[in-house]
Write a protein that binds this DNA or RNA. Structure first.
Length: 214
DNA sequence: TGCCAGGCCGGGT
DNA sequence: ACCCGGCATGGC
């Protein structure tokens, strides 16, 4: 038996069970969350999102119209609040001007072009773009993050200094191109990275990968 | 207490 | 093409 990527996935899934990501209901909320969670724990993002929710601002136009300073204040718990207020505005402008704030419209066109467009927005990089595409749009783009690199480089399945595209390619070339799989696999990686293969636990001893036979 | 968290940008080499 | 400093709160 080989440690194929799919078997690694199953070992995570067996360990944690289904995670049903993204932790957010509407596509719009997911996209906002994807920006807010940049280098920030999800706990803090939840506070920011519930502030927006409470003020009935989880709608494109309403969120775009609010004063940037007030927005920064509302999202304060998620950290980098000045930066992220600006980034949210940048995205909302694009979203309103091109799709009238309709995620259905946004995801109905060519996904590769959409990814390029998203990357043109100041404040949206590869991980955020792929998170939006995968979790808000159900498009098959594998999300790579710090956890992914940490876990897989520890097992010598990628290198620490590999680029985003290199790691992403490793996954897409070794997995069936299925949205449900990409979705669940990344969620499993985050769960593992948060709770088991942490920075403080470099041995990663109970990582399920260790229990797969060579 | 200090370190870390589901990045990204801009400026410098 | 990399490399680095800056951005900032809350949890453990």
């Amino acid at each position: 038996m080989q440690k194929t990527l799919l078997k690694i996935y199953y070992s995570f899934y067996d360990y944690f069970g289904p995670l049903n990501w993204w932790p957010g209901s509407t596509p719009f909320e997911i996209m906002i969350g994807a920006i807010l969670t940049q280098n920030t724990s999800w706990k803090n993002v939840e506070k920011a999102i519930s502030n927006l929710q409470r003020n009935k601002l989880l709608q494109p136009l309403e969120l775009y119209m609010i004063d940037e300073k007030k927005l920064a204040c509302l999202i304060k718990p998620s950290g980098y609040f000045n930066l992220k207020a600006k980034r949210l505005k940048n995205f909302l402008k694009y979203f309103l001007e091109n799709y009238q704030g309709s995620s259905k419209k946004m995801f109905s066109g060519n996904s590769a072009k959409l990814r390029n467009d998203l990357l043109m927005i100041n404040g949206i990089g590869q991980e955020t773009a792929d998170s939006i595409l995968l979790y808000a749009g159900n498009k098959p783009f594998f999300v790579v993050d710090a956890y992914t690199k940490r876990i897989f480089s520890r097992h010598h399945l990628c290198a620490k200094n590999d680029s985003y595209s290199q790691v992403q390619e490793y996954f897409t070339k070794n997995l069936p191109r299925k949205v449900e799989l990409y979705n669940e696999f990344h969620a499993q990686i985050v769960m593992l990275g948060k709770n088991i293969c942490t920075k403080k636990n470099p041995k990663c001893s109970i990582c399920p990968i260790n229990y797969l036979e060579k």
